[in-house]
């Protein structure tokens, strides 16, 4: 009886081992073919051609370009040779495009002035000018009346009624000017970002061309 049970257990164990291994027995068909059977060898791999990348829209954030494209030594170059080629292609691409990814700068005109006060403000008799001018005039008036200090205090410390008047149209013009400056600054920033992205794209193209010519597959 004990031998019979041991024999049954042995047979069951053999069946399990037989299913797991390749030796024989039943083996279910694979859901997918083995990857090595369909993939070409690494040396014969050719990446798909690069797709055309349209320029980014005016106000979109700059696309993130990889500063180091994928490079494969198709001719079996050594890592040392690859680093040497990368360095030479880097210099060549910078020279050709004028864009250095290590120091990304683009030639742009100076930004529009944003913090300069509107020129009309000096004509409006603003609060500061009203206070200063009021102080001077108050001092003059006080001096005429025999008390320059009191007159200056009245004119400067509290601000005049008429001296602090502001033209409503001037305020509207100042608001419009501020809005226009903001729009100009936004446009300038977008233009700068676009120029930066364009320079980086040009550099990547030049670098890829150089590395491809040296026997690398670049993507």
């Amino acid at each position: 009886m004990l031998k019979w049970i041991a024999g049954a257990v042995f047979i069951a164990a053999q069946l399990v081992i037989g299913c797991a291994g390749q030796g024989g027995g039943y083996s279910p068909p694979p859901a997918m073919p083995p990857p090595m059977a369909t993939n070409p060898p690494p040396a014969a791999y050719s990446p798909p051609p690069p797709a055309y990348t349209p320029p980014p829209p005016a106000y979109a954030p700059p696309p993130v370009y990889s500063t180091q494209p994928y490079i494969y030594p198709a001719r079996g170059q050594s890592p040392q040779q690859e680093e040497s080629d990368k360095g030479q292609c880097y210099g060549w691409a910078v020279q050709q495009t004028g864009f250095d990814p290590a120091n990304p700068r683009v030639a742009m005109p100076p930004p529009p002035p944003g913090d300069a006060p509107p020129p009309q403000q000096s004509l409006a008799g603003g609060a500061l000018e009203g206070g200063l001018g009021g102080g001077a005039l108050g001092a003059v008036g006080g001096a005429i009346g025999g008390n320059a200090g009191e007159g200056a205090a009245i004119g400067a410390a509290v601000g005049g009624l008429f001296g602090l008047m502001r033209r409503a149209r001037l305020q509207e013009e100042q608001q419009q000017q501020m809005q226009q400056q903001q729009r100009q600054q936004q446009a300038y920033m977008a233009q700068q970002q676009n120029a930066m992205a364009q320079g980086r794209a040009n550099y990547n193209r030049a670098f890829s061309a150089c590395m491809t010519a040296r026997g690398y597959t670049v993507n």
Binding site: G125, G141, G155, G159, G160, L161, F162
Partner: peptide, 23 residues
């Protein structure tokens, strides 16, 4: 806010005040 009156005149039933502030 205060304004100093520099001159006071009376003419034909009107009191006329004048002054200068800022510009």
């Amino acid at each position: 806010r205060e304004s100093a009156i520099r001159n006071v005149d009376h003419a034909n039933g009107k009191v006329i005040l004048s002054g200068a502030e800022g510009e």
